[in-house]
Write a protein that binds this DNA or RNA. Structure first.
Lengths: 218, 218
DNA sequence: ATTACTAATCGCCGAGTAA
DNA sequence: TTTACTCGGCGATTAGTAA
């Protein structure tokens, strides 16, 4: 489909030529698109030719209406733009499944953490974390996560031990809902920690060294 | 902005050239847009000239990324399409304010109805309805409402009296949120009933015989 | 493989104008 | 007023090709 004609259909749609025939003069249409009356006239003829509009030429002013076919084309354009602006709020990070140090279980067993995850993320996390080792160029994305605004998790003291704060982002890993955690005191690290309602490693059959992608919602 | 260049920016955005520079060959880009490699090359040069993309030409494959300015243009396109497809889901009906028969108050006082309106429409309706008499050509739109899917309100029995079900649609009348009700057993009728959190007649200073428009969300 | 130049062609644009 | 024709001009496209 020619971009010029799509543009013309878009203008007609904005004028309301969707449910009914509406009066649109070629000069008005031209002005709206920043082209001459003559060019607008040509475009209308092309749209008619392609079966994208119907016309009532009975009255002194022509009446135009977009066809179903035209609306389908416009909707596919709309879908593209939706994709773009939903994608903009998403960050995809590739990482390799890494053996945990067993620390994840210890941290995620702390009731003070669990309580916050339940209320702030909306799920009760499985006690344990899936560690992803991030390589090379992908590491710039970790930097983005460190500086972005996420859901805040407060630190606390339990007994004589201090547990640090963190912020996290909802995410999905192979279509399974999860979240990634960025510790507040995160010195340089190439490991991304993922938590979920499920035991991700078992549920997805993951093995050490396997490459996965996490889609993170910013 | 030229439609051809907007189209090119859209393709680049779909390829993810938003947050980072991504490798895109001119032949691949041309294929995606249905033009030749040469044309794609020219378009890239034009986008560079206009400050709409930046390029790393260091590697064997050029790397492209859209600028802020480009994203603003794409977002305005997105906004246009949103307008179109929100508009499409809206039906505007003209009607004349009609004196009620006092029935509205009786119905809307039934707690079984009110409960459903609260939970399904999100507001507690003022006990009473505003009746609009629909004339002539506009009546076809009532037919659309009867056949469309709306929010279902269940009928019930209170004492020895049966109250019928209905379906309704969120709407707005002079920018005041409201809803229109279509009784399930709606024999032919030229009256449209409007409910709202407010007493519409008073809030909007409506008088019998006044012409108003309701924007109904399908 | 790439990118992008040249040159020829295609087709879009708009002034003038008819109906 | 409309719509839409002709036609000169120029921008857009592409095949061929260089680097």
């Amino acid at each position: 489909m020619k971009p010029n004609l799509v543009e013309t259909m878009k203008e007609l749609a904005l004028l309301g030529a969707i449910h009914e025939h509406i009066p649109v003069s070629t000069s008005k249409l031209g002005r709206l698109m920043g082209v001459s009356q003559q060019s607008a006239s040509v475009r209308i003829l092309q749209l008619l030719e392609a079966g994208l509009i119907t016309r009532n030429l009975a009255a002194r002013r022509q009446q135009l209406r977009l066809t179903e076919k035209a609306m389908e084309i416009l909707h596919s354009m709309y879908a593209s733009y939706q994709k773009i602006f939903e994608m903009e709020a998403t960050l995809t990070v590739k990482g390799v499944v890494d053996h945990g140090l067993g620390e994840g279980f210890y941290y995620m067993s702390q009731e003070d953490y669990r309580k916050q995850f339940r209320s702030k993320l909306g799920f009760d996390p499985y006690p344990g974390t899936l560690n992803l080792k991030i390589k090379g160029r992908e590491m710039g994305k970790l930097e983005v996560l460190r500086t972005a605004d996420g859901v805040q998790i407060e630190g606390f003291i339990n007994g004589n031990r201090t547990f640090g704060g963190a912020h996290c982002f909802l995410a999905s890993l192979s279509d399974v809902d999860c979240a990634v955690i960025i510790p507040v005191r995160s010195h340089y690290s190439d490991v991304l920690e993922v938590i979920s309602r499920h035991h991700l490693r078992r549920k997805l059959g993951l093995k050490d060294g396997e490459l996965v992608e996490v889609d993170i919602t910013l």
